[in-house]
């Protein structure tokens, strides 16, 4: 992949948190990863392995301790200022005094989009997440999964070339989850956006991703990257043998670790 076609390049990145008592938490150690434009990459790994941390570094919400990250060839700070990414956090993070519609329109409002264009876009997104009837509700009148859907719509409001999503479907029921996964796939194909997607679900990672990045904790690092080159991503894929093969590959990478894996790992697509 040439550097100019890369959405995100991460090179030898370290992150050390200094705690108030003078201790140190080595959250990320020598992490390198390149995400191509339009590519869908999932991060998977046990709790505390640094998935959210890595995402925050790419979003320029925390500074890296060492190494280098670029987003579309720019520094992370420049990319943030240029609004090159949309982000959905682990918590929905809606503003409680704003209606669902006003929450979705927040980034558009901040960046000076006029009221009519804002409304047009929020109508589209409300339809996408299936919450047209809740446009004028406040967040405290929504279920956890509905809030998360609003947060996802908000992250897509400006049609970013890069989406950073931290367990966005964690609070959804299985039905809605599959529906949102299908929508996300369709959306990415349509807009050609690159996605960095954190999840705890192996089937979800396999269904959505071009590549699945497996991480391990203490210190957080990448232990395996599993390539999945499915020709198409539709409902049939969920029943496909290739899909199950992918699931097995990710599972053994996750449980066995890189070296001492006993089971059938390293399926051809690694």
């Amino acid at each position: 992949m040439s550097a100019t076609r890369a959405a995100v390049t991460i090179q030898g990145v370290d992150k050390v948190f200094r705690t108030r008592k003078g201790g140190e938490v080595h959250a990320l150690s020598d992490v390198s990863l390149e995400v191509a434009a339009g590519e869908f990459v999932s991060l998977i790994g046990p709790s505390g392995c640094g998935k959210s941390t890595l995402m925050r570094l790419v979003a320029d919400l925390d500074p890296a301790t060492g190494g280098e990250i670029t987003v579309f060839g720019k520094t992370v700070e420049q990319a943030r200022k240029d609004q090159d990414y949309g982000i959905a956090f682990q918590q929905a993070g809606l503003l409680p005094w704003r209606t669902v519609r006003a929450n979705i329109e927040l980034p558009l409002e901040i960046h000076g989009v006029d009221a009519r264009a804002r409304k047009e876009r929020s109508d589209e997104l409300l339809a996408l997440i299936g919450l047209e009837d809740f446009a004028d509700h406040h967040p405290d009148q929504l279920s956890g999964g509905m809030k998360q859907r609003v947060a996802i719509a908000r992250s897509m409001a400006e049609r970013p070339r890069l989406l950073l999503m931290d367990e966005p479907f964690g609070a959804l029921d299985e039905m809605t989850r599959e529906h949102m996964q299908n929508e996300l796939v369709a959306l990415c194909q349509e807009t050609g956006a690159a996605v960095i997607f954190v999840t705890h679900s192996i089937p979800e990672a396999v269904f959505l991703s071009d590549r699945v990045v497996v991480m391990s904790p203490r210190p957080g690092r990448i232990t395996d990257i599993i390539d999945l080159s499915f020709s198409s991503r539709d409902e049939d894929l969920r029943e496909d043998a290739a899909f199950y093969k992918g699931v097995t590959a990710v599972r053994s990478a996750l449980h066995g670790g890189a070296d001492a894996s006993p089971g059938p790992r390293g399926v051809e697509n690694r």
Partner: peptide
């Protein structure tokens, strides 16, 4: 999380005050 959100939008201090 709201502070992070405003930072991700590169919101000005005035916008953060008024909207958040």
């Amino acid at each position: 999380v709201h502070r992070d959100l405003m930072r991700s939008y590169a919101a000005t201090a005035e916008q953060a005050n008024r909207l958040l």
